[in-house]
């Protein structure tokens, strides 16, 4: 009785969605996030509905399966603007009003009318315990090796302050909410400082998601300004709104000053200047600039995590695609990271 009472109350909360954005799916997801009945979550652990929006690469299917299993029960998967890929047996295709479909699935999940989706992968480590080394981690002495398939951190030279801390290499993406959709990076970190970076897969192209106001919103989010970002997004979606309120939100928040000068600079324009230019473009007092290109991976080493995330979100999508040539040929099938 108590449980069903809890479930009924939970049903009245907005549907917690983790969006997996594919090719040309970003603008639609951003617009959906403005609907009062849904709430986009930054991590799959906080969500109950996995919403795949737009076509995703075959090579990203293993990552998507792992992501699926990270959602807590009860959970469901919806495929929108694309057809379900093989290997997702309980997935459902959405045609028409996606917000309504999400609400329905949400209600069914919370009330128990819909069965929670099973795991797609066995619940076991990606590699067996190797039983070598002092602690069975597979390395020499207490260092190195890959316990359960995870590379163990090793001390390494520090680029910044000379402290030889442990360097840790891991893959981030392709569906990490703080990175552009599709971008798969292999980062070596010491603490929160990026030592080296590789692009394993490029971000997805987004043909209709690049108005200046949307770009401003994407930069405000990692600065902790979710409310202001939503207001910018809402104005972009409606193509009308009070620009004076946006101007106040941008200036009073200190967003421009929070971004370090010189961060992410290519061809003489840093992130601060990009943000200013986009805002001026949105107001009609600046025109799009044609800027030179470089490589994203050259910008990241030496940056702290938060700076690296700002850099990754600071480019127009067509330019970002040019900045992210994969560091090796993508055969579409190869598993990149575990």
């Amino acid at each position: 009785m108590a449980v069903s009472g809890l479930a009924r109350l939970a049903t009245s909360a907005p549907a917690a969605i983790y969006p997996v954005v594919g090719k040309d799916g970003l603008a639609a997801v951003e617009d959906l996030s403005l609907h009062p009945a849904v709430s986009l979550q930054p991590t799959p652990r906080h969500a109950s509905v996995l919403l795949v929006s737009g076509e995703i690469r075959r090579g990203d299917h293993p990552a998507l399966r792992r992501l699926h299993d990270q959602l807590p029960h009860p959970r469901a998967t919806l495929w929108w603007r694309t057809t379900p890929a093989p290997g997702f047996p309980q997935a459902e295709n959405v045609e028409g009003d996606v917000a309504r479909a999400v609400e329905l699935v949400w209600r069914q999940l919370m009330t128990g009318e819909r069965r929670s989706e099973d795991n797609l992968l066995p619940d076991e480590p990606p590699a067996a315990w190797r039983g070598k080394g002092d602690h069975g981690q597979g390395g020499e002495g207490m260092m190195g090796g890959k316990p359960y398939g995870r590379p163990m951190a090793m001390t390494d030279e520090d680029q910044r302050d000379g402290l030889a801390l442990d360097a840790y290499t891991a893959c981030f993406g392709p569906f990490l909410s703080v990175l552009p959709p599709g971008l798969l990076l292999e980062l070596t970190l010491q603490g929160d400082v990026v030592q080296s970076a590789k692009v394993l897969r490029a971000p997805f192209a987004q043909a209709v998601a690049d108005e200046p106001l949307r770009r401003v919103a994407r930069l405000l989010r990692p600065l902790g300004l979710a409310g202001a970002a939503e207001r910018f997004q809402r104005t972009a979606a409606a193509q009308t709104g009070d620009l004076k309120i946006l101007d106040r939100a941008l200036r009073w928040s200190g967003a421009l000053h929070a971004i370090p000068p010189g961060l992410g600079e290519i061809a003489g324009e840093d992130i601060r200047a990009s943000l200013r230019r986009w805002w001026e473009q949105a107001q009609g007092i600046a025109s799009p600039a044609s800027l030179g290109d470089g490589r994203l991976v050259d910008l990241l080493p030496g940056l702290e995590w938060s700076e690296a995330i700002l850099v990754a979100n600071s480019f127009e999508y067509d330019r970002l695609l040019r900045l992210c040539p994969p560091d090796r040929e993508d055969d579409g099938d190869q598993e990149d990271c575990s």
Binding site: A13, S48, Q70, H73, M110, A226, R231, R234
Partner: peptide
Amino acid sequence: LKLMAGRPLAAATMAEPWRQGDLHLVRQRI
């Protein structure tokens, strides 16, 4: 958050913490 985002404010906002907390309680701990 709603004020900053330009969403309409309603009296139901006061009940949202309950709904949200409750939602966490019915979900699996991973």
